[in-house]
């Protein structure tokens, strides 16, 4: 088993946000020297259908995710977000490239990586007839936690997400989708993952539940030492929560920056409105000419 050695940094915090985005100013420092995730030239292909057509789901992706940051991954449907997350969580093998999580190679040190990660998927993956309590205890034991401690912790987390203790005993199938998603998040947090992979955690939630979950993710960032990778189709959410965002298009990272940086980029180079929507439209559009031009104009600094 591996313990993650937390790197203490003494330098002053780097202001990452403008005053307008004050609410999301980081209270902790990001450590670039010991990144949470390093991905280099990661590629994954699937062979699909009777004609054995090859689909390039993730194409030569290289990333460096800092410790303690919330790293957003945006992209159209089928752009490879979930595949990238599955690759990081050892649920898929890499065709090419390599990934390190807190310095552990995900292929050679699979167990060490599994110990420090957890993933929440779009669909709440539970034994539906079992109660939240039974599901959580199962999870706790898989991760070698003490069942009693885990139970107390689960009650605390779920209370924070607005789910009362008395609901913990009834089958999960009696809960709404939003509630199930909250239980899924609680389950992931129970194991105190150093790297939390959230694949569309708020998709399908009502506005209030969505806010609950988002506020909770912010709280996590501010109070825990988790590094979070978040995919979402909610651009406001991405802007609000993420320190940096990568946009995937056809499996490749087309751009990566802070939300402010991205907005400024589309405004300056493409004359678009400085919104996340323009960012999304610009970088996931079918025509990549704009992007090529953008790369060229990169050099002239004004």
């Amino acid at each position: 088993m591996t313990t993650v050695i937390e790197q203490q940094q003494t330098a002053a915090p780097v202001p990452m946000r403008t005053a307008a985005a004050e609410t999301t100013v980081r209270r902790r420092q990001l450590d670039d020297a010991f990144p949470a995730v390093v991905a280099e030239h990661v590629t994954k292909r699937f062979i699909v259908g009777r004609k054995r057509k090859s689909v390039l789901a993730v194409s030569d992706v290289s990333l460096r995710i800092r410790r303690g940051e919330i790293y957003g991954v945006l992209g159209a449907n089928g752009s490879g977000k979930s595949t990238l997350i599955r690759l990081m969580s050892t649920l898929l093998t890499l065709d090419a490239g390599r990934v390190e999580v807190f310095g552990h190679d995900i292929v050679r040190e699979e167990m060490a990586v599994k110990q420090v990660i957890n993933r929440v998927s779009v669909d709440a993956a539970f034994f539906k007839k079992l109660s939240p309590h039974e599901n959580l205890i199962y999870a706790a034991r898989l991760y070698g936690l003490d069942a009693r401690v885990a139970r107390a912790e689960a009650i605390r987390i779920l209370a924070r997400l607005g789910i009362g203790e008395k609901r913990l005993g009834r089958p999960l199938e009696q809960m709404s989708r939003g509630m199930q998603q909250k239980v899924a998040i609680a389950r992931a947090l129970l194991t105190s993952p150093a790297l939390l992979l959230l694949d569309e955690p708020t998709t399908g939630l009502d506005p209030r539940s969505k806010l609950d979950v988002q506020a909770f993710i912010e709280e996590l960032r501010d109070t825990h030492d988790s590094t979070i990778v978040l995919t979402t189709h909610d651009l406001d959410e991405a802007e609000r929560l993420c320190d940096r965002i990568a946009v995937l298009n056809d499996g490749a990272v087309v751009v990566e920056d802070t939300p402010e940086g991205l907005k400024a980029m589309v405004a300056e180079r493409h004359g678009a409105a400085p919104t996340m929507e323009s960012v999304f439209m610009t970088f996931t559009g079918r025509s990549l000419d704009d992007d090529t031009n953008a790369d060229e104009s990169d050099s002239d600094d004004d």
């Binding site: 649920l91 957890n118 999870a139």
Partner: peptide, 14 residues
Amino acid sequence: WEGTLEYTLMAPVR
């Protein structure tokens, strides 16, 4: 069928 396969296989269990 339950949809838990990925969760179980992702856990640090031999």
